[in-house]
Design a protein around this nucleic acid. Structure first.
Lengths: 199, 199
DNA sequence: CCTACCGATCGGTAGG
DNA sequence: CCTACCGATCGGTAGG
């Protein structure tokens, strides 16, 4: 019955995977529909049958990434507090084992600083949501005395997100010299009065 | 006597300035020699008379940036310690008032994570030198008891550099919501046992 | 989904 | 430094 639709969904998924891989290697603007299509096993005109424009394909890549992240880490599900912070650390640990994911994200984020980039709104929203989520946790920790006195929760949240992103670029550039997870743990622990990972 | 050479140097400088501006807006790969040449008031073939290839122009942009940074902040001149850290903060303050500089740097850094990018070696070296400089200062502070006990100087150096870079991308994306200098001060102060900026 | 094509743009070169 | 050009590549469309 829905055989045709199923095949279409699989094909679309292959294209999105190929696109994410190419974006990671070349960024969005420098990626060509022909290269993406070749990896998906079709022509570039065939790709445009599934995604009407280059931008529509980018949107599909970003949407799938959001869905995957949400499903894997349940970042927003936990109540504000230490657990949320631990889940962000877990996300960083996952990323170290999946360089491709980090490449796409880092490259697109840098391109999207321009207001006219098609992914600009996506990243502006992404940053705001991440900051809000982390800030809520720091505020909760402040109320229970688990945040070091004098630390501003909102500023600490901004700092944590910026640190995650900066570490990723530096890690991609010189992988052997960057301990992403160690740096995140150090920074977080320094802000707390209780152990982040009790022995 | 050297009239011809002087004019050549001025023209070359105009081209480098135009290139830096375009790199900041579009990145390196997406920048065209024709757009850069137009802003410098010549044709793209004329540009190639001064710089033989697109890569040669990129190298000139990076070289000039290094020279300007070194001259302005004398980052390597100070003896390791609090003063070096304060100079990096001063650099961040300067950058907030010169968005264009930050755009070039952030965009190129993200592109250059690829090993085959012509600026890859430049950024790998840049990161290493920055880490070494900061690490030396943290080591010095550790010996005088000005670094919080338990803080690893090398990890703290990596963290500080990553934080600077991550803040810049987030600030470029959502300028009104990011306090770059405040975040850097908070992070540094949290690592120290003495005031970074005594009142 | 493909073949065939379009106009536009790219980095670089020849020749002056 | 310019004019004029090259081959290559781009996103997108027509027509099936």
């Amino acid at each position: 019955m829905s055989g045709g639709y199923l095949k279409g969904r699989i094909r679309r998924d292959d294209i999105v995977s190929a696109a994410a891989a190419v974006y990671g290697e070349a960024g969005y603007h420098a990626s060509s529909l022909r290269e993406i299509a070749k990896r998906a096993g079709i022509t570039h005109a065939g790709l445009l049958y599934h995604f009407p424009t280059k931008e529509a394909l980018l949107a599909a890549v970003l949407e799938r990434r959001d869905a995957e992240d949400a499903a894997r880490e349940q970042l927003t599900a936990a109540p504000p507090g230490l657990d949320v912070l631990r889940r962000f650390i877990a996300l960083a640990e996952h990323n170290v084992r999946h360089r491709g994911i980090v490449e796409v994200y880092s490259r697109l984020a840098a391109e999207a600083v321009s207001e006219d980039h098609p992914a600009h709104a996506y990243f502006a929203r992404h940053y705001r949501e991440a900051r809000d989520s982390i800030a809520q946790s720091f505020h909760a920790l402040a109320e229970t005395g688990e945040l070091r006195p004098g630390v501003d929760p909102d500023l600490a949240a901004l700092t944590f997100i910026a640190l995650m992103d900066g570490l990723q670029v530096q890690w991609l550039t010189t992988p052997t010299q960057v301990d992403t997870v160690g740096s995140l743990r150090l920074s977080l622990q320094t802000l707390l009065t209780v152990p982040l990972f009790p022995n």
